[in-house]
């Protein structure tokens, strides 16, 4: 089935947001706000209010990484110390808690950070090809609203875009 991608470029957030608001109120039947992708040069604090809370599992990755790092770190250090027979004593225990706490803490942060970055890469779909409708103007100063929709809705969407002073409309058909 053919899918149509249509992107409208707007000169500012207000126009883009009012377009999305109309889509949210079902200005075009069969098109919901979930089909909308907003492309912007900055992170706008109200994006989530307009698009709805789409959530982000990145903090979960951080939590997992941190817990893994701390536990793995401590066990790694303790088992290394326990198997290391000719280690210095200095009147101290073989598995020393203060040093292991310090090092496990570093491991907590290291693994937490790495896991967060991996989570970000996966969730933000980085390291994939850019969308064919990507416009360099988005990285400059324009706001793009992109929708994925059926052929029958394309024209009404363009009408909607034009109503909100769209600067440019681009479209793309995929198989």
């Amino acid at each position: 089935m053919k899918r149509y991608y249509v992107m409208g470029l707007f000169s500012n957030f207000e126009e883009a947001f009012s377009t999305i608001s109309e889509i949210r109120q079902h200005a075009i039947p069969g098109v919901t706000v979930d089909d909308v992708t907003l492309k912007s040069p900055i992170e706008h604090p109200e994006i989530e209010e307009i698009l709805g809370d789409r959530g982000s599992p990145v903090p979960k990755f951080s939590l997992f990484g941190a817990i893994f790092g701390a536990i793995f770190g401590f066990l790694f250090l303790a088992s290394a110390q326990a198997n290391f027979l000719t280690q210095p004593q200095g009147g101290k225990a073989i598995i020393t808690l203060p040093s292991n706490i310090v090092l496990s803490y570093e491991m907590l942060i290291l693994f937490g950070v790495l896991s967060t970055v991996i989570g970000f890469m996966i969730n933000a779909r980085l390291m994939t090809k850019r969308h064919p409708l990507y416009s360099e103007k988005v990285s400059l100063d324009q706001v793009g609203v992109m929708l994925e929709l059926d052929e029958k809705n394309v024209d009404s969407l363009k009408e909607l875009f034009k109503k909100h002073k769209v600067l440019e409309i681009r479209e793309e058909v995929s198989q």
Binding site: T37, S40, E43, S56, T116, F120, M121, N123, L126, H131
Partner: peptide
């Protein structure tokens, strides 16, 4: 890394930036 400034990227970006700062 194929950044195209869409809302998904910005949304996760804000989270990771905060999480990294916290770390």
């Amino acid at each position: 890394l194929g950044w195209q400034g869409d809302d998904r990227q910005w949304r996760h970006f804000r989270r990771i930036y905060l999480m990294m700062a916290c770390f």
